[in-house]
């Protein structure tokens, strides 16, 4: 029933980008997104394109997986472009009733579209090459300084990883309960709204009970292993920067600096 859904969108393979420390990828993605809004000229966008293309090539992820993320924002993209094309004041090129296409509008819309597309694809490359667990580990490590102001960083990231871990389990459970109720003649395909709502009860009650049971079991198992929060906790796979990670930061910094230079020069 849920065959098509994969959580996150991690693509399993081995590539230089997969091996990179998740913190480098997180910081790199942030820097890339900011850089997209720094550059203004076409040379700058071309540089951003080159950077992205290199990253995709380095990730060894097939292109169709990379662009799949675009599907979700296609409509938003079209609406944004349409509004910008028609509603930006400036030198009129064509007019069609109240709709006016201006030169400024075209330029603005194109810039907007390029930014959005690069932004989505850029963050897709990160989620495609980093497992959800690595991501939460990276976030926890990057947010480490916040512990000084008593933000429960470890607890937040633990909750995030548990939630992520349980999504596929609960989906499988939903599928199982649905089938068990269908074997008792339940109808989940009814078109009537009222019936549809009522048919959810035999699904949701067992699902909630199962979620609570699993939460209980997990809490017990964690306590049995003396879990007591983040204080003094060590990791099985500690995040340690290696040479390639320093190099990665270097590349990101160089790209970021180049973008600022281009902005100042006005290209």
């Amino acid at each position: 029933m849920f065959d098509g859904i994969t959580l996150g969108q991690y693509y399993q393979t081995d590539s230089p980008l997969h091996r990179l420390d998740p913190r480098v990828k997180l910081v790199g993605t942030m820097a890339y997104i900011i850089a997209l809004f720094i550059v203004k000229g076409w040379v700058g966008y071309f540089l951003a394109f080159l950077f992205l293309a290199t990253m995709i090539a380095l990730s060894h992820v097939p292109l169709r997986f990379v662009v799949r993320g675009m599907k979700a924002i296609l409509i938003i993209l079209l609406i944004t472009v349409a509004f910008n094309v028609f509603l930006t004041p400036g030198k009129v090129l064509w007019s069609f009733g109240v709709l006016k296409v201006t030169k400024e509008g075209l330029v603005f819309a194109a810039r907007m579209a390029v930014r959005l597309i690069f932004l989505i694809i850029g963050s897709s490359v990160m989620t495609l090459t980093t497992t959800p667990n690595q991501l939460t580990d990276g976030l926890e490590s990057l947010m480490g300084p916040l512990k000084k102001i008593h933000v429960p960083v470890h607890e937040i990231s633990m909750m995030m990883s548990i939630a992520l871990r349980f999504i596929p389990i609960l989906m499988e459970e939903t599928d199982k309960i649905m089938k068990a109720q269908m074997a008792r003649g339940a109808d989940f395909e009814s078109k009537h709204l009222m019936q549809k709502i009522r048919s959810m009860v035999p699904l949701l009650v067992p699902l909630f009970i199962s979620a609570f049971r699993r939460a209980n079991d997990l809490a017990m198992a964690m306590e049995a292993r003396c879990y007591h929060g983040g204080e003094g906790r060590t990791r099985m796979k500690p995040l340690i920067y290696k040479g390639r990670d320093i190099f990665g930061y270097g590349v990101v910094a160089a790209f970021f600096a180049a973008c600022i230079v281009l902005r100042v020069v006005g290209l």
Binding site: K176, K179, A180, A183, R184, G185
Partner: peptide, 20 residues
């Protein structure tokens, strides 16, 4: 197929998880 499911009754593993 709903009629079929009445004629061919299937009790899943851990069927108590379907009680609601």
């Amino acid at each position: 197929r709903r009629k079929l499911r009445a004629s061919v009754g299937l009790v899943f593993q851990y069927p108590e998880h379907q009680l609601f």
